[in-house]
Structures are given as structure tokens and as C-alpha cells.
Amino acid sequence: MYGNAYIDPNEKANAMIAGEDPIKLAEFEARIARGEKIEPKDWMPKEYRKQLIRMIEQHGHSEIIGALPEGTWITRAPGFKRKMALMAKVQDEVGHAQLLYSAAETLGKSREDMTNDLITGKSKYSNVFNYPAFTWADACIIAWLIDAGAIINQVANAKGSYGPYCRALDRICTEESFHLKYGHDNVVTLATGTPIQRQMVQEALTRWWPPIMHFFGPSDKISQHSEILMRWKVKMASNDDMRQQFLNMYVPKIWDLGLVLPDPKLKLNEETKKWEYTEPDWDEFKRVINGGGPCNAERLAVRRMAEERGRWVRKALYNATEKYVTPLA
């Protein structure tokens, strides 16, 4: 858009920037191109705001809902130390949601509205949390490999253009590194343990592999839309690139333990240095994300229950003379 003083709203490629002031847009894009961050009160295109709210909000919801399958295992985690560690991890996840909601709030959507959109099913959250953690080993696989995937995604996004989101992600990534170590330690303990422990972790890995392959989402369509989001540093890496990075880092670690991944096609192509794999079942992915997964109903019902039961406490503490101001950073 540089040097182009007119944005033709009828041009399909311009749908995302239709109606924007071309001069302000050029300044905005130049700032991002220089590697500077955008701060809450800066001018920004409507679509930039909208996409960031959607993304950060969903990220926040994922942290909250993700705490549910793991929280289930706190009372049954083997041994005092693991109970304490899991409790700390779950507390971290809820804390991450607070940080993310705060970042989204600076863009003008209230936290109440975000919660409303979550509990009515209007907003989405990471699809993996619609699957159950059947055994302790499932909780271990989540802590290791789902958190590993999340770190890849978050490290990429931490280099994005929106200041408050980057700051939240920097803090989150530091904490996630403990989760990853803790998860790996648990998986290694099971994989190097008794035959029953080994079988348990293998079964959990087999169950979780399809959701893990879904984790980064379907291949991005190469479109004007995604090109603009990349230029605005809203989207920092393609879904396929992040999936490749994950496979590169973690498949060897899984194989080191002699565990088997349920995909006979999975291998590193030595020429292209890319991983080859069976295309994940994207129909299943869509079915689950739209409410058809094994735990969707439970997750939202539990979330609504928590919200409803806490309401009287929040009301009792509410002071009617106060009023809401959008947070600064």
C-alpha cells in the first residue's frame, strides 16, 4: 500500500483495509516494517484490531479450558511432589489466561464480554482440550507435548507487532519452560519404568498423536488475507512451518524413548529436510471444533458452573462508585 493514496474498496484484495485512511495505514505499516511495536492507543486498522482480539482471546480461553483436563489429575497425581508440581502448573495456566485477557482488553473488548463469548460457545479455544485425559499418562503427554507445541507457537508470536501481546507472551514462555521439563520428566519416568507404565504411556501417546498433529491447524491457504496478517506481524509463521518445527524437535526425543508414533508414513525426508506424514483428518478437526468432540459439552458446562457459583462473591465485593477504564498497556 506504500505510496498509494487510494484504496479501492471494490478490489477483493483490499477487503481487509477497505475504508482505512491510506496515509495512516502507510505510517502504521512502516512502523511495523521498522520493527517497532504497536501500543494500545496507536491508530490501527480495524481488521488488525479484530484479528488480534480474536487471536489473543482464543489463546486466553485455551489456557483456562486447558487447565480442566490437567486439573482433574491433581488429586490423583502419583506422589506428593507431582501433586505440588501439577498444582503449580495449573495455577500458571490460569495466570496465563489472566495475562492474555489483559492484553486483549487493551484493544477494547471487556473481560466480561470475552467470558460471555466463551461460555456461550461463540469464541473458540484450542481443539486439543476437547479430548479427555483418560489416565495419568495422558496428563503427562499433555504437559510435555501440548506445552511443547504451545511454546513453539508462543515464541513465534512473541516477535509479533502488538506490544501488550508480546509482553504477555514473554512472561508466559518463561513459565512454560518449567511445564515442558516437568512433562518430559514424567514421560521419561513412565517410559523407562515397569512394562505396565510403559504400556500406559504408549497408549496415551497413540491417543494424543492425532490431536497433536491437529494442534497447529490446517495448512494455511495462500491468500491476500494471510499475506496482510504476516505483513502486520499478527501471524508470524505458517501452520505447516510450526508443525515441521515441532516434529523436528520432538519426534527424535519420542523415538529416543523407544515409543512408537501411530503414523507409518512419518519420516524425515533427508533431501528436503522436511517431515513427511499422513495428512491429519481435518474433517474430524472441524467436527470437534464445532462442538462434536468428546468433551466440548463438559468443558463449557463446568466453566459456566464456576462462573455462576462465583458470581455472588464478585457481586458482594463490587463497589458501585467505581467505573471501568481500559488498561494502559
Binding site: 464480554d113 460471555n116 459439552a297 463438559e298 458446562a301 459456566r304 458452573m305 467505573k323
Partner: peptide, 23 residues
């Protein structure tokens, strides 16, 4: 959670502004 007897469609009133207080 099972012991809580949670209805699957336990629809609740939406949160109103300031439910989560100020910042």
C-alpha cells in the same frame, strides 16, 4: 465433577459490565 450433578445445558445469565471489577 460428576458428583456436582452439572446439567449439560446449564445456561447462565451473561456477565454484566464491571462483574470483573476495575483494573
Amino acid at each position: 465433577l460428576t458428583r456436582e450433578n452439572i446439567e449439560e445445558n446449564n445456561l447462565i445469565a451473561p456477565l454484566t459490565p464491571m462483574d470483573n471489577w476495575e483494573t
